[in-house]
Simulated assay, not measured.
Amino acid sequence: MNIAFSSCPNDTFTFHALVQGLIPDAPEVNVTYADIDQTNYWAANKEGPEVMKISYAALPWVLDDYRLLPCGGALGRGCGPLVLTAEDETDPASIQGRTIAVPSDRSTAYLLFRLWASQKIPDGVGEIKIMPFDEIMPAVQRGEVDAGLVIHEARFTYQTYGLHMLQDLGVWWEEDTGLPIPLGAIIAKRSADYEKIEEWIRSSVDYAWEHPEVSADYVMEHSQEMSVEVAQQHINLYVNEFTRDLGEDGYAAIRSLLGRASDEGLVPSFHSENLR
Rank of each mutant, 00 (worst) to 15 (best):
M1R: 02
N2P: 06
F5E: 05
N10F: 10
N10L: 03
A17S: 09
L18F: 09
L18N: 03
Q20W: 01
P24K: 08
A26I: 11
T32N: 07
T32Y: 04
T32L: 05
Y33E: 03
Y33W: 11
I36P: 00
N40M: 01
A43N: 06
A44T: 15
A44I: 12
N45P: 02
K46Q: 14
G48E: 12
E50T: 13
V51K: 04
V51E: 03
I54P: 08
A57K: 06
L59N: 08
P60F: 03
D64G: 15
D64Q: 14
D65I: 01
G72F: 05
G73A: 08
G73F: 05
L75S: 04
R77Q: 13
C79G: 08
G80R: 01
P81I: 06
L82Y: 07
L82R: 05
V83R: 05
T85N: 00
E87N: 15
D88S: 05
D88L: 00
E89D: 15
E89P: 02
P92H: 07
A93V: 12
S94H: 15
I95S: 06
Q96G: 14
G97R: 03
G97T: 05
R98G: 03
T99C: 15
V102Q: 00
S104G: 03
D105E: 15
R106Y: 13
R106L: 15
T108M: 00
A109S: 15
A109G: 15
Y110N: 14
Y110W: 15
L111W: 11
R114W: 01
R114P: 00
A117C: 10
S118I: 01
S118F: 05
I121G: 12
D123V: 03
D123M: 07
G124W: 07
G126V: 00
K129H: 14
K129I: 15
M131Q: 12
M131H: 03
E135C: 06
I136Q: 10
V140W: 09
Q141E: 15
E144L: 15
D146F: 14
A147D: 08
G148F: 00
R155F: 06
R155W: 09
H164P: 02
L166W: 11
G170P: 01
W173N: 05
E174R: 06
E174D: 06
P180Q: 01
I186M: 14
K189G: 12
R190D: 08
Y194K: 07
Y194F: 06
Y194C: 08
E195W: 08
K196A: 13
R202H: 10
V205T: 06
V205Q: 02
Y207G: 02
H211D: 09
P212D: 06
P212A: 04
V214T: 09
S215W: 05
D217L: 04
D217V: 08
E221R: 13
H222D: 01
Q224F: 13
E229F: 04
A231N: 09
Q232K: 13
Q233H: 09
H234W: 11
I235D: 03
V239F: 07
R244V: 07
D245H: 10
E248N: 10
D249K: 09
Y251D: 05
A253C: 04
A253Y: 04
A261I: 05
A261T: 02
L266W: 01
P268F: 01
F270Q: 12
F270I: 09
E273D: 12
E273G: 09
